[in-house]
Design a protein around this nucleic acid. Structure first.
Lengths: 205, 205
DNA sequence: GTCTATAGGGCGATAGAC
DNA sequence: GTCTATCGCCCTATAGAC
């Protein structure tokens, strides 16, 4: 029996529940567009259209405009994504099984989204790293939290210093696998990443 | 003594040699801007300015406009980047040493560029994967060539099936490490990726 | 063939009607 | 507070002078 309920949560960027307020719909549409098309590639007109909201409402709820919307998106979806991954890791008792299961689950979600949704932060981070210091810092904070959270999880199974390298490797493999998987429209990179991560964990125990 | 000369090649996106033709300067400026700011974030006006070329010359040399320039950049810098990495791997006789050396060298280059230059293809790939099928395909071709090239190199030291997973892991770790390193302005992710890659290679022998 | 001027459209942001 | 019209700017692409 698994260690926790297979929660099977809704995708991070799925449609918002019916009856959501205007602000929630704007946040949601912005998060999806930013994640899929990047910062410069996303237009606020499109955000308003996708959110079924009037254009002016964006500035009513987010007076800081595009930058405020983007920072809110990075700082919101970042922790959500980590929670999703940690939840997947809890669905198996054995840590090696858990890692493989998490990557396999991510592979299925990637295919289910039509290869549209990978990491909600990576595209934004690369887009702004050279042009927007505030947003670069927000993305850096998110990645640091992921590595800290991963280090805590791996510390349950290996020594703390090894746990940190494992957490770094996990984040890097996830990011690289989403990049290759989305670009090649192929779930195999995520499965290969899971196998490599399993090898690294086994070697560290 | 090392297996090959430590060539210490110029950075992939350094300034073009003096006396280069207009076409070469345009290609070079475009490659650097696309790699650093992405597809939507790069303006052709800026390309012309950086290349010290008249705006119209872009369309004289690249009649296909922005898309042609971008595809040329992906298909040109992709193989150059692989050649650079394979060259680094030849600078050490022991394969584990070679892998660690390549990542350490990449870490130094990243710092030297002010955290501006990582993978020349990744930012473009994520930018266009959902909006431009031609450029997505070009990036997918490049990544596939990298994995094939890496598989050939690792096949000198491990069995072919293991070599492929190692090559995939290497590409994914490089991409993830550049993402984290550029975003956090820290060379440590690249060094950590090198350690993990060394562990994976050692476990496969 | 090199280079300039401009067309045509989309952008982020804002003012102000209701 | 919700929504629309519009401003000024920058974009890609092209036409045409030289």
């Amino acid at each position: 029996m698994a260690a926790a309920t297979p929660s099977n949560p809704p995708p991070l960027l799925a449609d918002p529940p019916p009856g959501s307020g205007t602000r929630a719909r704007i946040r949601h549409a912005a998060a999806r567009l930013f994640a899929r098309r990047g910062y410069a590639g996303t237009g606020l007109k499109q955000v308003a259209t996708d959110a079924s909201a009037p254009f002016g409402s964006i500035y009513h709820f987010f007076p800081g405009g595009k930058d405020a919307l983007a920072e809110d998106m990075i700082r919101t979806t970042g922790p959500q994504f980590m929670a999703l991954v940690l939840g997947l890791l809890e669905e198996r008792d054995d840590p090696v099984d858990a890692v493989v299961h998490a990557f396999d689950s991510a592979a299925r979600d990637l295919v289910a989204s039509g290869y549209a949704d990978g990491c909600p932060v990576a595209t934004m981070a690369l887009d702004v790293v050279d042009t927007n210091e505030t947003l670069r810092g927000a993305a850096a904070d998110v990645f640091a939290e992921w590595i800290d959270g991963g280090t805590a999880w791996f510390s349950r199974h290996v020594s703390p210093d090894r746990a940190r390298d494992l957490a770094s490797a996990m984040v890097m493999l996830v990011e690289g696998a989403f990049l290759l998987g989305r670009t090649s429209r192929d779930p195999e990179p995520l499965r290969a990443a899971g196998r490599s991560m399993a090898t690294l964990l086994a070697a560290a125990r």
